[in-house]
């Protein structure tokens, strides 16, 4: 006998939520594990059976990573890699600068493509294809160039490489938003006496603002968490947070999971803060092509 419609619907809903819940657990568990580990004392890091909720929660990991505090008075065993504030500063400077540049130039380029067709469809596609080359392919020759140009291990070196590698994304994303702004709206402004720049400032920018913000966050996340290029193009002077993070798990230092987790939480927080600030724009921006009309 066939199932009734209502019953079919219930079965479907149950199946749907089961899958969603399983997926949520898969996605959320690592985050939970990192946060939980960051509050565990040393002996719980490797404990078996695993400790999910720490019996003796402590802030030592955070203090140890982010301040000069150490519970072991005499040992300085991980002091050598304690440069998280410097890494944070580097990461902030590099990510924000390169993201601003990428979104800024990307938007200008995208405007040109959208309104003046300065790049053909093929060129636009090639631009994206170019970005499909795995970074590992270019990183060796790039580090040679960089050492000759004196850009190795410098902030500006990383800014340049991040700016260039994220520019295609910026162009593609912002173009989709600019395309949504009707040309007639711009023409209306121009025939009312506004100059091209005035039109962009007064009409186009306000309409694509959410899109630009979404693009900004997307690219910021890319550059903020980029590891490979940062690892190879920087040595000791300019360490970014992802590289710093990797140092907590090495042949010389051992596996200091608790400290690493405390750092990882710190790495994530700035993105969360930015996300909260711009959430109004994100909802609108990430639902592509939903310019306010």
């Amino acid at each position: 006998m066939a199932m009734s419609r209502a019953r079919k619907k219930t079965v479907f809903e149950v199946g749907r939520y089961t899958i969603l819940v399983i997926w949520l657990l898969i996605v959320a568990f690592p985050m939970f594990w990192v946060i939980s580990t960051s509050f565990k004392p040393d002996h719980e890091w490797f404990a078996w059976p695993p400790v999910y909720w720490s019996q003796e929660p402590t802030l030592n990991n955070y203090l140890n990573v982010w301040t000069d505090y150490s519970e072991y008075e005499d040992t300085q065993y991980i002091k050598s890699l304690q440069k998280p504030w410097i890494a944070l500063r580097n990461s902030l400077i590099i990510s924000l600068t390169s993201t601003f540049l990428a979104v800024g130039f990307g938007a200008i380029l995208a405007y040109g493509v959208s309104r003046y067709r300065i790049l053909s469809e093929t060129r636009m596609f090639q631009l994206l294809m170019l970005r499909m080359v795995p970074p590992i392919v270019v990183v060796a020759p790039l580090s040679l160039y960089y050492s000759t140009l004196g850009l190795l291990d410098t902030v500006i070196g990383l800014v340049i490489v991040y700016f260039l590698t994220t520019l295609p994304y910026a162009v593609w994303m912002t173009k989709s938003f600019i395309d949504e702004v009707p040309r007639e709206v711009e023409q209306a402004a121009m025939i009312l006496g506004a100059s091209r720049w005035r039109t962009i400032w007064e009409v186009v920018l306000p309409l694509v603002r959410s899109g630009l913000v979404a693009t900004f966050l997307f690219i910021l996340i890319l550059t903020w968490s980029e590891y490979l290029l940062a690892l190879i193009l920087s040595k000791t002077e300019v360490v970014t947070l992802p590289v710093e993070l990797s140092k907590y798990e090495g042949s010389t230092e051992g596996r200091v999971y608790g400290r690493q987790a405390a750092l990882a939480v710190g790495v994530t927080i700035p993105l969360v803060i930015i996300g909260v600030f711009i959430r109004k724009h994100l909802a609108r921006g990430f639902s592509f092509g939903m310019v306010r009309r």
Binding site: E184, Q187, A188, M190, I191, L192, L207
Partner: peptide, 20 residues
Amino acid sequence: LEPGDRNLGMVFQSHALFPH
């Protein structure tokens, strides 16, 4: 001459109001 300098007014099919 630029559109804005021709002393014209234009009404578009889509109205083209500034939505913001």
